[in-house]
Design a protein around this nucleic acid. Structure first.
Lengths: 338, 338
DNA sequence: GTCTGGCACTCGCGAGCCATGAGTGCCAGG
DNA sequence: CCTGGCACTCATGGCTCGCGAGTGCCAGAC
């Protein structure tokens, strides 16, 4: 129901506001974009856009700024994803290539994203539950103390201490190790619980306690909320947020420290492509004046984790979406290679 | 050469300024602290203190604020370390007790320090070079691909991929694993290089390439600059910094993102006790208006890593030092138990 | 010699005021 | 439906000015 021209006006407003950080008026609009109509006409259009809730004015006799709803329309209908240039792609690839280790891959990705988008970057470690088991190792550290090491196909390594109810011999250990691996190696983590159910049965009575302790420790590490880790970076970019600085930045920093909040945030994005959550669309109150651009990444076709950026609602959406998408793609490649 | 009373005046100025964040004048001082003299006398003392460079006035006709040199004197001579109260100690202990894992210990410590001091907390992972080897594990992931896992007595686990020049049989693997462990288990990491020097010799020619690749990977992980990790938290506390906010907070956030900078910062503190670096005493320019309070911690008598906080030069030094010292002590205990 | 009260002086801060101008809404005419 | 014109609003920045906290200095008291 919005005429073609009004959409153009909205797009122009968003672009100008993102560029200048200042409310944009009708005159400035007609000057910068050749809309082919006079300021007065634009004013009428703006009034209509305001009625519909796409833009607002901070105070009478000031220009307009887009509302969350306005940005939403802009992202959905008025702007595409800006692809990275060839040199940018090369830079991304080079930057990620030298990684030696999963931690290193994640750390580099965070830095890269923060630099490219000039915003706060968040990268989730590949999820355990969505990966497959490469190897399970059991080490005896003390007579009644084992270490359980889990290795995934994405290179993630997780370790837990296990205190055994009774001493556990080397022979039993080797036996358990072999049985465990033959059951779960190459299988998906989600299948592990059902695969190890009856694993204690063949063991001697005296060893069963230890075996089931090991198994329950194994299952615990797979519990969703424990196993999710993430890394953030580029918080210095928060200082480019705006003028009303301290009030806005505080809750954002607090939210960023709450891993739970961030994980939920990333988890909400179900879309296979790039997801954008704008302002109040974010459930967490502290992030009501930020937008989150996120996307899944993975070694194969399937996403094993998410990554994204957090920035002011007034951000360059096409560029940010392009950067996020490109980085996710290359990280996926790197993981597949390793 | 400063009279007793003048030192008292300086102490009072520091305390008041830390409390109020506002320049403190002679009248307010005599009212809040019973110095037993009149404002006029205090004014003379303040003039003297200013001549000596311990305090300064932001502008004529304003109160005085301490300089870095003033804080230094305060910390060295005028104030002790404020011990934690019994309930606080209990709280610290409870908070750390539930940790399941070294990562968890470090994460909890960061949160705890940030909460106690209401400042930015930095905790270094136990150094490899200053720990002893508990176990070295070698896993075969693919015919020509091994994983090397290092476990320290402090619970730290480090893993590296090793691409072998030639396939490496299970028997050779077991052999190497046994030889490695018998050489290095229980020894200090610094001694490892000399202990494994000739380890390749007993092996068949075809396996030597792989063995030396494994050994060089092992030595690489011990190289100082790679092996240092740290965790930071409580960045939201930066918002309580002051009024001239954005200008100050930016470089601090940037510095905090540079692990190298932070490691150097912590590394500089050689003192066995709590070390305080005030304002310009910090080499890094971005931290010129912050103070760093740090201390070593360790499982035994010896420090295996550092932890500390970063805050405004205007901070509660006795309280912060007390908190840092107490936390370090309890973390040491936790590590010793595990 | 040291402390004190008194006094003149400085100067940042906030309030009040005003002119400016960007921007708006509305209306009448093309 | 678009346009030019016009009256109106109101945030912003520059300006003055009074207030008051705080200082430095001096003369006198202990």
């Amino acid at each position: 129901m919005l005429s073609e021209r009004r959409l153009k006006v909205l797009r122009a407003i968003v672009q100008d506001y993102v560029g200048t950080e200042e409310p944009v008026g009708s005159k400035a609009l007609t000057e910068r974009h050749n809309l082919g109509v006079s300021p007065a006409t634009v004013r009428n259009d703006m009034a209509a856009l305001e009625d519909e809730g796409f833009i607002a004015q901070p105070h009478t006799s000031a220009g307009r700024i887009p509302t969350d709803k306005g940005y939403r329309l802009f992202v959905d209908k008025l702007a595409g994803v800006k692809p990275m240039t060839a040199p940018e792609r090369r830079a991304i690839q080079n930057f990620l290539e030298g990684a030696v280790d999963l931690d290193d891959v994640v750390a580099r990705t965070v830095r890269l994203l923060a630099q490219l988008t000039r915003q706060v970057a968040v990268v989730q470690y590949p999820s355990l539950t969505r990966s497959t088991v490469r190897h399970v190792e059991l080490l005896s550290l003390a007579p009644a103390r084992l270490m359980l090491v889990l290795i995934t196909d994405t290179g993630r390594v997780e370790q837990r201490m296990v205190d055994c109810p009774a001493p556990f011999g080397e022979a039993s250990l080797a036996d358990l190790r072999a049985r465990l691996n033959s059951r779960v190696a190459g299988r998906r983590f989600t299948d592990v619980p059902s695969l190890v159910e009856d694993l204690a049965e063949p063991f001697e009575a005296e060893d069963r306690g230890t075996v089931s302790t090991v198994l329950s420790t194994l299952l615990e590490t797979l519990v969703e909320e424990n196993e999710e880790r993430l890394m953030i970076g580029g918080t210095a970019n928060l200082t480019r947020f705006g003028h009303d600085f301290p009030l806005v930045i505080r809750p954002v920093l607090e939210a960023l420290e709450e891993q739970v909040v961030l994980l939920k945030l990333l988890g909400e994005a179900k879309d296979p492509g790039v997801t954008v959550r704008i302002g109040h669309e974010n459930a967490h109150e502290g992030l009501n004046s930020t937008s989150v651009v996120s996307v899944g990444y993975g070694s194969g076709g399937e996403a094993v984790a998410k990554l994204g950026v957090v920035g002011p609602t007034r951000m360059d959406y096409p560029g940010t979406m392009g950067a996020v998408r490109a980085v996710a793609r290359y990280v996926g490649q790197i993981l597949a290679e390793s």
